[in-house]
């Protein structure tokens, strides 16, 4: 094939790739531009203010509270999802009666939309008419109080996210478990290893790369989570569950401060990049140490 003939396929997919790259990557520099400029109301002129907005942002109590909420929410959700996914995957890695039915039940929350999930749980927690108070009424515990207290609301938000995403976590880990050679497990049994010893000394080390990737994906997803939180708590009570993404949403669509919202977009983007950088450094270090 001639050199020019080898280039022909590129000419066909460059337009599509170009559009995709533009749509994917143009918003970020535009957000950076908005975050570094200020429009004068009335005059309509735009002035460049550099990093001023970021300095103000880091001194803004609303921002620091949102950042802290994001850390709590992201790490809480990720940790619990890893546990839930692992437990479910270990359960489904065995032969079970009615396995198909149980899997369907686990998958249903995952296919429900974020908004529907949020609204359903919000109504279940209604203090006057919610199902949960009715179910647990005999214990004397008013379950709906959880959603009305700052710490309780964060816990509920995390648990709803875990309920919704456990299937995803399970599927990834299960696929990894099923790639482990059965002979190794059998050999460990023959050697007298308990289930727990087999799990900690053989299974977990073998699926560690999968767990690392899953952690990265879950963390990034949790940091950017908006839909369910918006509907379930709207960042409340007070601002106890207002993460950076909800703060950004509020600045853009309620306070109409697009430049401020853009600066939050940039910060969120940097956080995502930081998570990825830390992850890749970790993988590289692990790779180097294994060599």
């Amino acid at each position: 094939m001639t050199r020019s003939a080898r280039k022909v396929p590129y000419y066909y997919f460059i337009p599509a790739v170009g559009i995709l790259l533009f749509l994917s990557y143009f918003p970020m520099p535009y957000a950076l531009y908005l975050s570094m400029t200020q429009k004068r109301p009335g005059a309509g002129t735009i002035e460049f203010i550099g990093l001023d907005r970021f300095y103000q942002l880091f001194r803004d109590r609303d921002f620091t509270e949102s950042l802290l909420n994001t850390v709590k929410y992201a790490f809480g959700e990720t940790f619990l999802l890893m546990i839930a996914g692992l437990v479910l995957a270990l359960m489904f890695d065995r032969s079970l009666k009615l396995k198909g039915l149980y899997m369907t039940i686990v998958f249903i929350p995952w296919v429900v939309s974020e908004v529907v999930a949020g609204w359903t749980w919000r109504w279940m927690f209604n203090p006057d008419f919610g199902l949960l108070n009715y179910m647990f009424g005999f214990t004397g515990w008013k379950v709906s109080d959880l959603l009305q207290s700052p710490n309780g609301a964060m816990l509920v938000a995390i648990l709803v996210a875990v309920w919704r995403n456990a299937a995803f976590s399970m599927v990834i880990i299960l696929a990894s478990l099923q790639s482990i050679s059965r002979e190794m497990i059998e050999a460990a049994k023959i050697d007298g290893c308990t289930y727990l010893r087999t799990l900690t000394s053989i299974v977990l080390p073998l699926i560690r790369p999968t767990l690392a990737v899953l952690t990265l994906l879950l963390l990034i997803n949790a940091v950017n989570q908006t839909g369910t939180l918006l509907v379930l708590t709207n960042g409340g009570p007070v601002r106890a569950t207002e993460t950076l993404s909800l703060f950004m949403y509020r600045e853009a669509f309620f306070n109409y401060r697009l430049n401020n919202a853009a600066s939050l977009v940039v910060v969120l983007g940097l956080i995502n990049v930081l998570i990825a950088v830390v992850y890749f450094r970790f993988i590289k270090l692990k790779g180097d140490s294994m060599e």
Binding site: P29, Y30, L32, G44, T45, I46
Partner: peptide, 19 residues
Amino acid sequence: ASMMAMFALAACQSGTGGT
């Protein structure tokens, strides 16, 4: 370099905010 080019493009497009 691509990001800087796109940044410059965005800045040029929205120059004055205009009336």
